[in-house]
Simulated scan of single mutants.
Amino acid sequence: MAKIKLIDVANLAGVSKSTVSQYLNGRFDYMSDKTKVRIKLAVEELNYVPNPIARSLKLDKTKTIGVVVRDITGFYTSRTIRGIDDYCKTSDYNVLIYNTDVDPEVEARSLEALYQLRVDGIIIASSGENTDLIDKYIANGLPIVNFQLEHDGSEKSIIISDYRKAAFEATEYLIKLGHQRICFVTQDFSNVKSRRDRYLGYTDALNQYQLPIDEQLVQYWHRDSGFRNSPKIVLNEVNPPTAFFTQHLPITTELLAILNEANISIPDDVSLLGFDDIPMAEFFKVPVTVVTQNPYEIGREATKLLLNNIASEALYAQKVMIPCSLIERLSCKRI
Rank of each mutant, 00 (worst) to 15 (best):
S230F: 14
L6P: 04
V320A: 09
Y23F: 15
K3F: 11
R118S: 14
V95M: 06
E237G: 08
I159F: 04
S225N: 14
V290E: 03
R334C: 08
Q247E: 11
G201D: 00
F245C: 00
P323N: 13
A113E: 09
D277T: 12
D269Q: 10
S21Y: 00
I278C: 07
Q148F: 07
T19Q: 00
Q219E: 11
P267Y: 05
T171L: 05
D86M: 11
T35A: 13
A302L: 00
K136F: 14
L326F: 08
T19E: 02
S265D: 15
K193G: 03
A10M: 05
L174P: 00
R164S: 04
F28E: 09
S78E: 08
M280G: 07
A13F: 06
Y48T: 05
K5F: 11
I138R: 07
E313S: 12
S110I: 07
L114A: 02
V68W: 04
D268Y: 10
A257I: 08
L307N: 05
R70E: 07
T289I: 10
K36G: 06
E261R: 14
K36L: 09
V9K: 01
F244Y: 02
L330E: 14
N263D: 12
G178N: 12
S154M: 11
E105K: 13
N11C: 08
Q219D: 05
N47C: 08
I327N: 05
I298H: 01
L57V: 12
A205C: 06
I134S: 00
E301A: 10
A314S: 11
I233C: 04
D85K: 12
M321E: 10
R334G: 05
P295E: 02
V20L: 07
Y87H: 01
Q210S: 14
L273K: 02
L174D: 01
I97F: 10
K193P: 00
T80C: 06
K63M: 12
A205D: 00
Y220K: 12
L96S: 08
I97R: 07
G74I: 05
K136L: 13
N263I: 10
D197Y: 06
N260M: 11
S56M: 06
C183T: 01
E282M: 10
A281L: 11
Y93G: 02
L96C: 08
C88Q: 02
D277I: 03
R195W: 05
N229W: 07
K285G: 09
Q247S: 10
S126N: 06
V192F: 07
I123T: 04
P323K: 09
T252V: 05
D276P: 02
G83V: 02
F284M: 15
I134E: 01
S56H: 03
I72R: 08
D224E: 15
E155T: 00
L41K: 14
K58F: 10
E45W: 06
